[in-house]
Design a protein around this nucleic acid. Structure first.
Lengths: 232, 232
DNA sequence: TCAAGGCAAATTGTCGACAGACGACAATTT
DNA sequence: AAATTGTCGTCTGTCGACAATTTGCCTTGA
């Protein structure tokens, strides 16, 4: 007899145009087709896609709350611009969350559940780094961190992280290659695992502090340079 | 000669319909007219208010990203339910943010800018506490904390705090009177100010830790009791 | 009596249309 | 020539209508 708890056919995601449209727009932003500050007019998108404006609008709101778009009254949506200061604030928030999440994972003894997946993700990163596929590497990087936050068991942490992650990913096209010391970033993640393995929440916390601190400094500096040259 | 930096006429904020509707719904939720789990049907609201469904929908999305509503596909909006575990996670997140914000305020020497307003807010709280106007007191309480987060200068912190605050406020109708030791909560805020005045970020951090920790425990316990008796 | 299936009401998802708001450019004044 | 005002096209905010989906009820059959 069939277990009804195991859906043989997942719900055939016809969940609505709006979600599909949101994905299309997201891809366009992440891939750099749409650049920060670009206007995203409902009517234009709707015409192009051959749908009415309603689902486009819906998708816009979705991406707005994801932090990828901003809307001005009576003017519609624009791709969110982000400056170095903003990025710095973002990373500081990320720090607060992940620091605590790492400590929680250790404290509640959940580390064993995810050690293997974490290691697998690092290996993926190393491989991608060797192939110079930075954008893809960043995705896996975020998956690594997400897994830790998810395992912390605090749903709120995860929600905030996901929002931050989507914004970070949206910057990928701008980041290009921040630092390319081959496989360095990837391998640095082993330090996090080691700290987690000590079983000491405080060490987990400070390892995460350090790791994110490094990324923060690198990314923010990179952005400051971009602003200095291309800046208004 | 007129200073053009001083606008004689402020921008005549004529919020869109959707914003007004969002406010109406928010009030209904905060005041307890709409209870957690209640259905909020677009069509019904639209009929009642005498507008079309579009702005109601918009308002729904707004409150969804504020965390007051949730939406199920093809089923519409429902007032968000919140359980003790969820509240606990919420307070843990709040802790992470405010702890760091307090430290930042001290570190960047911004305390002097807000000492007076903070004291004024505490006095308001004391007064409201004496009048047993708990719901109003909570609003002022949140303003106190918001001012600190705002002054920290990290926009991300503020954004997250505002979202959390709106959810906390939405629970007010359920919290009723958690603990009523007259003026106790209000006066406890002086401890925070004292810690901030030491100029030591670490003390600021731990004062905030303690303060929010107390609130967290009280609120969560209160909720557990509610669940135990009224629980499904 | 109860389960299965189907029908009807209600509600959301989507659409095309219209009026008002905004930005850009042209016309006008100083 | 610079600044102000008038005009126009484009886009959003809102609307009413239709299609698709869900839910609860009612019928039907064992």
């Amino acid at each position: 007899m069939p277990m009804e708890s195991e859906p043989l056919f997942p719900p055939l995601a016809r969940d609505a145009l709006s979600q599909r449209i949101a994905r299309i727009l997201t891809d366009a932003i992440v891939s750099g087709q749409l650049k920060p500050g670009d206007r995203v007019a409902e009517s234009v998108i709707a015409r192009d896609l051959g749908v009415s404006r309603a689902p486009v609008r819906e998708a816009g709101r979705l991406l707005e709350s994801a932090g990828l778009l901003v809307s001005k009254a009576n003017r519609g949506f624009f791709v969110r611009t982000i400056d170095a200061e903003d990025l710095d604030a973002l990373y500081e928030l990320r720090l607060c969350i992940e620091r605590e999440a790492a400590a929680r994972v250790v404290r509640e003894g959940r580390l064993a559940d995810i050690l293997d997946p974490l290691r697998a993700l690092i290996e993926q990163m190393v491989a991608l780094s060797a192939e110079k596929r930075l954008m893809h590497q960043i995705v896996v990087d975020l998956q690594f961190h997400r897994l830790i936050v998810e395992t912390s068991g605090n749903q709120r942490f995860l929600a905030v992280f996901d929002k931050l992650a989507s914004e970070i990913q949206a910057c990928t096209a701008l980041i290009e290659r921040v630092f390319d010391e081959p496989g360095m970033i990837a391998r640095n993640h082993y330090l996090i695992i080691e700290a987690l393995e000590t079983g000491d929440p405080e060490q987990a916390r400070s390892a995460m502090d350090y790791h994110i601190g490094v990324a923060r400094k690198a990314v923010v500096e990179h952005f400051r340079k971009l602003e200095a040259e291309g800046g208004a």
